[in-house]
């Protein structure tokens, strides 16, 4: 098990003032899996992502990425180590084109600095061409090649989500965190998203998925962790989770 683990969350807590957003949450994510994290609003899912990506520092606990403790490391370093994410409320760069958005995702895999940008040495030109090719390939992968030069803010919402996923993929992550990627999508788009997530996994990328859409989650995920009010309520395969009384009551029951 241990050598198949890419990410180990170990007893992580985080409080905001009086709100205990996470309390001693722990689980392992296996390499190559699609791992879902579910739970009602305010359960602490987004906070968990923030802690994993270094956007906030946990109060206690360890986060181990491929054998290395990463809690409290700066975000840019973690991206370079292979963690990428998307946001619950899509956060594209509105003054950049679609292609440029994806190119920003390529930031940690390119080197050109201030002087290089102005002088444009041959290696800078090569690097830029390489980055553009990679970005176009990713836009093709999510099916948005033809809008590459549109302003990202002008796209319909569902497409913006795809651009954000392409941007996250541009950093060549080993671990991709998707925060409610189906929120605001219609049924057709959601089905396409399910395909896309599986295609991402078959590129060798481990996916952690926060999602409300139960069908989507149960369909595509290998394992599920259930959070409720900052605590881990249950963990298991989709089948086990669907059979779990406590989960039904705390989450599914409350919903429906």
């Amino acid at each position: 098990m241990a050598d198949r683990t890419i990410l180990h969350i170990d007893g992580v807590s985080k409080a905001f003032g009086g709100v205990q957003a996470l309390y001693r949450v722990g689980f392992r994510v296996a390499k190559g899996h699609i791992q879902a994290v579910i739970g009602p609003n305010g359960a602490g899912k987004t906070t968990l992502f923030n802690v994993i990506t270094g956007a906030t520092c946990p109060d206690e606990g360890r986060i181990v990425l491929e054998g290395m403790e990463i809690q409290g490391r700066p975000m840019h370093e973690l991206v370079a180590r292979g963690i990428a994410r998307t946001f619950q409320n899509v956060e594209l760069f509105a003054s950049l084109t679609v292609l440029e958005n994806v190119l920003v995702g390529r930031h940690v895999r390119t080197r050109c600095g201030l002087v290089g940008a102005m002088v444009r040495w041959p290696w800078v030109e090569r690097e830029e061409r390489g980055a553009r090719d990679a970005a176009m390939e990713l836009l093709g992968f999510v099916g948005l090649e033809e809008v590459a030069h549109k302003m990202s803010g002008d796209l319909p919402f569902g497409w913006q989500r795809l651009v954000e996923i392409a941007r996250a993929l541009a950093s060549d992550p080993r671990l991709l965190l998707l925060d409610e990627p189906a929120a605001g999508l219609n049924a057709v788009e959601t089905a396409a998203l399910a395909d896309l997530i599986q295609k991402i996994r078959s590129r060798g990328i481990t996916v952690v998925l926060v999602e409300h859409d139960m069908n989507l989650t149960m369909d595509i995920s290998d394992r599920i962790v259930v959070l409720d009010r900052g605590r881990k309520l249950a963990e298991g395969t989709p089948r086990e989770i669907q059979a779990d009384e406590a989960v039904m009551e705390a989450y599914l029951g409350r919903k429906g």
């Binding site: 990506t53 956007a55 700066p74 975000m75 840019h76 991206v79 370079a80 990428a84 994410r85 946001f87 956060e91 594209l92 760069f93 509105a94 003054s95 950049l96 440029e100 958005n101 920003v104 995702g105 930031h107 940690v108 941007r167 950093s171």
Partner: peptide
Amino acid sequence: RALGDSQGAAAACGVD
């Protein structure tokens, strides 16, 4: 330019 639009998203893309 990304930084000007959203500092959080820029950092999440690996910009120091």
